[in-house]
Design a protein around this nucleic acid. Structure first.
Lengths: 202, 202
DNA sequence: GGATTGCAGATTGTCAACAATGGACACTTG
DNA sequence: CAAGTGTCCATTGTTGACAATCTGCAATCC
């Protein structure tokens, strides 16, 4: 992980690593994951690996079949993708509307740090890092809401959007879109912020 | 379980039982669940119980804190509940719209069976059974879509709505609402069916 | 020849023992 | 007496052994 986030438990560390590999297409849809392989690779027993599988299944990145193990999930079909976009927009705009008046300078400063990471990833053309920081940006917004359950609601939807997907011709657009969101927030322009957010989610 | 559904794995059976107890408020928000207690109760080791905990966590019924175990989740806050309603409506109307032209006689016949269960539950004033069959009804609709991933997307949202909640003054209303959905489907009236579905989800 | 059965290896499912963690409460210390 | 420290116990986290299940392939039968 390029971020120095602290994962408290063994399964979380394993899940974080595997998530990164799925989102970066190092692991492709349909690829099987073997418990023993991974337990040897991470130097743990099969228990924590199974637990990590469970977390990633919940996030929609892996699919589990009893007695047959887990595989990397397929991308949402072309038919379902617009639904996922709509769901994610619904949640994120709900949260932004809800917290808008209570956004603190600390919040903005934290989001700016992430924006800087996004900018760096764009400039060095590092798609994997961009995916990671893009996710962190939106995650940070969701997490600033009081109701922590919103994150659990949002995560599986957002993950399904981030899987093996790249809609941008110019990678720098990602930076511009996120900057536009943050600029509008800083200016206190709620309508513009919501519009910028919706534009970014597609 | 009053239905004779077949659960293939041990964890699924345990999860089904616990889910029923959470949805029927036998287990209340904040109640802790102990691995050893449940493993003794179900006559298995702690492994399958942990696995069941993971499934229910993913569905939003339980909340997991590392090194501290799981508790029954809180109801969605009054602020978040409208969002959950909107998300569930979005998914279910999307599915109904999408499958409408391809609904078979077998589908309708199966849904009628569930409607009969709903009617029976209403008439005998059995709220727990009603919750179960209400869930089965909507689940059946979601599952008739080709994209099986939709169910995974829908479930955590629907579960959050079903937790310890009863919006109806007259329990028979539930039967009437579901009957109205099915009548509209039988009549081939898509608009009416979608409207009836939205009315039922609140 | 094509379908069915039976085996063998690989893989997941379950278990019970042991390790690590966290919280309560008594104890020391200033 | 208040703040901090240590110990114990309940509980979860991790492990490795063993059981059950699935998959592919070869032998058998019609």
């Amino acid at each position: 992980m390029s971020t120095s986030e602290i994962y408290r438990t063994l399964p979380e560390q394993i899940a974080a690593q595997l998530r990164q590999e799925v989102l970066s297409s190092k692991l492709k849809p349909g690829d099987p994951l073997r418990e023993v392989d991974l337990s040897e690779r991470f130097g743990v027993s099969r228990g924590p690996v199974r637990e990590a599988f469970r977390q990633l299944t919940q996030q929609g990145l892996l699919v589990l079949e009893p007695n047959k193990g887990v595989r990397v999930a397929q991308n949402p079909s072309v038919e379902v993708r617009p639904l996922v976009v709509r769901l994610r927009r619904t949640i994120e705009t709900f949260v932004l509307k809800s917290i808008f008046e209570r956004i603190t300078a600390d919040d903005v400063s934290y989001w700016e740090d992430i924006l800087a990471d996004i900018k760096a990833a764009c400039e060095s053309n590092d798609v994997d890092a961009l995916t990671e920081h893009d996710l962190r940006f939106h995650q940070a917004i969701i997490r600033s809401h009081d109701d922590k359950d919103l994150f659990a609601l949002w995560q599986p939807i957002a993950m399904r959007m981030m899987m093996h997907y790249n809609r941008l011709d110019d990678i720098m657009d990602s930076y511009r879109e996120h900057k536009r969101i943050l600029d509008a927030i800083r200016a206190g322009d709620k309508t513009a912020a919501l519009d910028a957010l919706e534009t970014n989610i597609q």
